[in-house]
Design a protein around this nucleic acid. Structure first.
Lengths: 335, 335
DNA sequence: TTGTAGGCGTTATCAG
DNA sequence: CTGATAACGCCTACAA
């Protein structure tokens, strides 16, 4: 690979001049500029980014940590981040945290070690203390779907509680009173908030939250299936089921159908996230929209603004969920 | 950030020694080694990877180019690649090509410019000539789901034709004779191959391929919907439909249901890829498995072997598709 | 076993 | 406007 030195020799100028035309940050005669450009073309010159990073103390790459690289939720985040960052000439380095504290920490160190200029973290298991420590180091970072008190300005969040509230409220408005709930792992902040929203809606309607109609699951499809089955076996009747995410809702739906339960006639189901395939289920799933792609873009803009000094950029760091009504919910059959 | 120089000073040794204990590639007294280790800990030292890259001419990162970062197909590829590479201490840099030739080329240059040691390409639009040119440059690369004659050893492929064949053959074996086909964009190699498999099965059964029962679409759900509708409006009867991927199959399925067509009673549908949600559709979708996650891992191993000299590693570069029978297919209703 | 010194490819600060 | 030259942080012969 050609170096800047060879280019300068061929063009008959000094390296400094070559560097100048590359970075267009200083005046160079059109004539010499042309000579340099020609030389670069002829040698098929590409700057060595490691050398640039070293000299500039900046790598033009930002690290993204998500739990998984596949799955209907994380894909759109990365897509949003990448599209926005790429436009700005920045690179995306990705690490998966697999919902494991140790792995997530390793991921962060991995990314920092790689010289990322900033980090975008979608991490559930990292303890607040760790994040606070991290904020004292030199790599700026922004968090998605997580709110840490002392780091508010670095958080891009969705009002999960409102989402949970809207979902259950719809059910109530439709006339349901016996409403079961399958939550995500309650140590996760968003699961906790969504559940709080559910309770809020119930209380507001004067309905007591029956512990027998609650099941704490894992945000996964299989977990939704087994949760539903447990609820069913408990013997307590319910005409509606709210799930803390669409994956569990789809699992529950599959299990319900297998048990001969008709949806929404015998049972209404509402999910959360509005993943891509929610619309494809039969019946199509009523759910709460989580604008995760958009939030990914906002995270990217946060980075552009706060780590790359693009001060003109603006971004949102608070999003509101919206209810998406489809066909998995309807008023309960009158007895 | 502390540098190797500060560590050496604190430990009272030379930089060379520090470097040696870091890289564990030369003998160092246990005593001095300990001193160095202590100093590193105390300063919370992390090597600067840009400097390492510059000195070693190696970045320990590999570039991955896929069409999209979301979607049910690409996620599992990245997950496979990342998991395998991460184990080996390599980083993954991701770029999206968006199925556009110019964007894909930019992506490749972007990745090379970033100093990737190797590339994993899942690119449909890059012309063979470009790839051949690329193979003459210094960054080794492997391609997924694409076979370029002169670059066979760098291709990890699935037998798409066999897959297409299996899908249609199932339909035929079930007694269908009037079989419609919605293909992917035929300029894509895999779409072409899958379609070839379809024709092969038809011919083998002595059934003529009726052009009125073919529709070339775009591999997307909406394309499957509109394709199906066109087929329906053509007036030609068909009792089964093979789609070149699951996304189009799901689109077709949705449209069929909206038209009051029962699946599989009135119409059998088979897809391709076995994406995650194929199982969640109603009825669950019969399809052809594309072990894309596994193939991603293989690509990673190719890189480890061919770009990082891990010669002991072995990998497969040829995969066979398997039919996954579910509930969207059954013998046609007897008239 | 340990230290010295040169080099990796760029950028940036000075002079000129 | 252009050219030396000193960083940037690390690796690796070569010496000691």
């Amino acid at each position: 690979m050609a170096t800047i030195y060879e280019v300068s020799k061929l063009a008959g100028v000094s390296l400094a001049t070559v560097s100048r035309v590359m970075n267009q940050n200083a005046y160079v005669t059109d004539a010499t500029k042309q000579k340099v450009l020609d030389a670069m073309k002829e040698l098929n010159y590409r700057p060595n980014s490691a050398a640039q990073s070293l000299a500039l103390n900046r790598s033009d790459s930002v690290g993204v940590l998500v739990a998984e690289l596949d799955g209907p939720f994380y894909g759109p985040v990365m897509a949003g981040v990448e599209s926005e960052l790429r436009k700005a000439g920045k690179h995306v380095i990705i690490a998966a945290g697999h919902d494991d504290e140790e792995t997530e920490k390793e991921g962060v160190e991995f990314l920092i070690g790689r010289g990322c200029d900033a980090l975008i973290l979608l991490a559930e298991t990292l303890p607040n203390e760790y994040l606070i420590e991290l904020s004292k180091r030199d790599t700026p970072f922004v968090m998605l779907n997580r709110s840490t008190k002392t780091l508010e300005s670095q958080c891009i969040t969705l009002d999960n509680q409102l989402g949970g509230y809207l979902a259950t409220k719809l059910l109530i408005e439709q006339g349901h009173r016996d409403i079961a709930y399958i939550s995500g792992p309650l140590w996760k902040h968003d699961a906790e908030d969504r559940f709080a929203g559910h309770k809020q809606a119930m209380e507001e309607a004067g309905i007591e939250v029956d512990p027998a109609l609650l099941f704490e699951s894992d945000y996964r499809e299989a977990g939704g299936s087994s949760g539903f089955l447990q609820l069913l076996n408990s013997g307590r009747k319910f005409t509606a089921l709210a799930c803390a995410n669409d994956e569990m809702a789809s699992g529950a739906m599959i299990s319900a159908v297998q048990k001969g339960i008709r949806i929404p006639d015998d049972l209404s189901i509402v999910g959360f996230d509005n993943v891509h395939y929610a619309r494809l289920l039969t019946p199509s799933l009523t759910t709460v929209e989580f604008p995760i792609n958009e939030m990914g873009k906002m995270a990217a803009r946060w980075v552009l603004k706060n780590a790359y000094g693009k001060t003109k950029l603006s971004y949102n760091n608070y999003f509101s969920p919206k209810l998406i009504q489809r066909h998995s919910t309807k008023p309960p059959a009158s007895k």
